[in-house]
Simulated assay, not measured.
Amino acid sequence: MANTSSAKKAVRKLERRTRINRMRRSAMRTQLRKAEEAIAKGDAGNALTVLSTTESVVMRSVQKGVIHKNTASRTVSRLTKRVKALSAQAAQA
């Protein structure tokens, strides 16, 4: 346990940051789940709308330091690829 007042304050700050980061990570994962569900349903229009929101949330997570930039880029890229394939499939039908 922390003994000095500065160490106690550091522990309080760490707990607060952990709680905030956990909330941000949870919100990001929820949005990713919504995007996955939209793609699974096969609705290209809805998937495009959800994709833009998801991209925003994921990139904001990068700015806040929740995830790494490359991880976010990879995630968004894979989602975009799947949505484009879905849109192309809908256009052919």
Score class of each variant (00 low, 15 high):
residue 62 V to H: 03
residue 45 G to N: 14
residue 34 K to T: 08
residue 12 R to K: 15
residue 44 A to L: 07
residue 51 L to N: 03
residue 19 R to H: 11
residue 74 R to C: 01
residue 70 N to Y: 09
residue 80 T to V: 08
residue 43 D to P: 00
residue 26 S to T: 14
residue 74 R to G: 10
residue 67 I to Y: 03
residue 15 E to P: 01
residue 9 K to L: 14
residue 24 R to M: 15
residue 15 E to A: 15
residue 86 L to Q: 08
residue 19 R to C: 01
residue 3 N to Q: 13
residue 22 R to G: 01
residue 29 R to A: 10
residue 61 S to A: 15
residue 71 T to I: 09
residue 25 R to N: 12
residue 80 T to F: 05
residue 86 L to P: 04
residue 85 A to F: 06
residue 51 L to V: 06
residue 63 Q to M: 11
residue 89 Q to C: 03
residue 93 A to E: 15
residue 85 A to V: 05
residue 65 G to E: 01
residue 37 E to T: 04
residue 25 R to Q: 13
residue 44 A to I: 07
residue 16 R to L: 11
residue 88 A to E: 15
residue 29 R to M: 11
residue 18 T to V: 11
residue 28 M to F: 01
residue 46 N to M: 11
residue 65 G to P: 07
residue 32 L to P: 00
residue 49 T to W: 06
residue 10 A to D: 10
residue 36 E to Y: 04
residue 86 L to H: 09
residue 89 Q to E: 12
residue 26 S to Q: 13
residue 80 T to S: 15
residue 84 K to S: 09
residue 91 A to G: 04
residue 72 A to F: 01
residue 88 A to Q: 15
residue 29 R to C: 01
residue 33 R to W: 00
residue 37 E to Y: 03
residue 49 T to D: 12
residue 54 T to K: 02
residue 85 A to K: 09
residue 79 L to G: 02
residue 31 Q to N: 07
residue 72 A to Q: 04
residue 29 R to Y: 11
residue 4 T to N: 07
residue 10 A to H: 08
residue 88 A to H: 12
residue 76 V to A: 11
residue 44 A to S: 15
residue 61 S to H: 02
residue 33 R to N: 08
residue 18 T to I: 09
residue 3 N to F: 11
